[in-house]
Nucleic acid binder design. Structure first.
Lengths: 136, 136
DNA sequence: TTTGGTGCAAAGGCTTTGCAGAAAG
DNA sequence: CTTTCTGCAAAGCCTTTGCACCAAA
């Protein structure tokens, strides 16, 4: 059904896309909502969710599943990896390109048909690293 | 608080652990609940959630975050990868060992302190592959 | 006994959805 | 005009939690 719709460029959709492309954090839907309501106070959380879904469905943005309970969004659609801070949940980019050899490796040991792979890192963001040093 | 508790081996915990180790699917908490209530009809979903959490906290089992909305559990604590079927959500094992060189790569391009990495695959399980061929 | 665990049901957190009015094309 | 989109609020889904009773150790 989504794919039969002609997308309209509403004010809301435009602002959502602009804002997501502007930031290099990887905001959750609610993060986006909080940022957006400053410039568009009447925008609703439902609209934010709906548009993030539609835009990622159309491959205009990326929906990330980096662990944790909330999905995150990325205005950069290039294929790259992410790190999630185990302390604060912040997500950063890791500019490592996919290695398709690993998919060949995988095919050797499974009867699933492999489509793609995803590499995720966990660690400590610089801020939390600082804090930990201070405590120690 | 969890770490100060002495774990007791209750009947429920034992059955949960046994059942999880017996299957090679990667059940969600609710999958486990449905399986378990056949042999222990009074077990509650809360107990299943609590024990899966406690056991994974104690590294006796693994909690997986393979995408999709529900967490999954694995009785095999060895480090290995997973494939998720994009059609039916089924999760399979991919016996590929971690490659720590990739963490060195990552360190070159981020200011996060890298702790570990995780490789996940998506694809089609044999059953869904069959179905797709039949339709085509 | 003591202390952790269980079942039940209610509450929580995140996301989706139905609907009536608004707006893009 | 027509069809999609929006704001609002309610519903949904998965998971966690409070509580009184139960059971390991």
């Amino acid at each position: 059904m989504l794919e039969n719709h002609k997308l309209r460029m509403t004010k809301q959709r435009q602002v959502i896309l602009e804002e997501l492309r502007k930031v290099k954090t990887h905001p959750t839907a609610d993060d986006m909502y909080q940022m957006l309501r400053k410039k568009m106070p009447k925008i609703s959380l439902g609209t934010v969710y709906r548009n993030l879904e539609i835009l990622s469905e159309a491959n205009i943005i990326q929906k990330l599943d980096v662990g944790g309970t909330q999905k995150r969004f990325d205005g950069d659609t290039s294929i790259h990896s992410h790190v999630r801070c185990v302390d604060c949940g912040r997500v950063g980019d890791i500019d490592i390109k996919p290695n398709y050899n690993i998919e060949a490796e995988a095919r050797k040991v499974t009867d699933f048909e492999i489509y793609r792979h995803r590499l995720e890192f966990t660690g400590l963001c610089p801020e939390c690293h600082e804090k930990n040093i201070a405590v120690a």
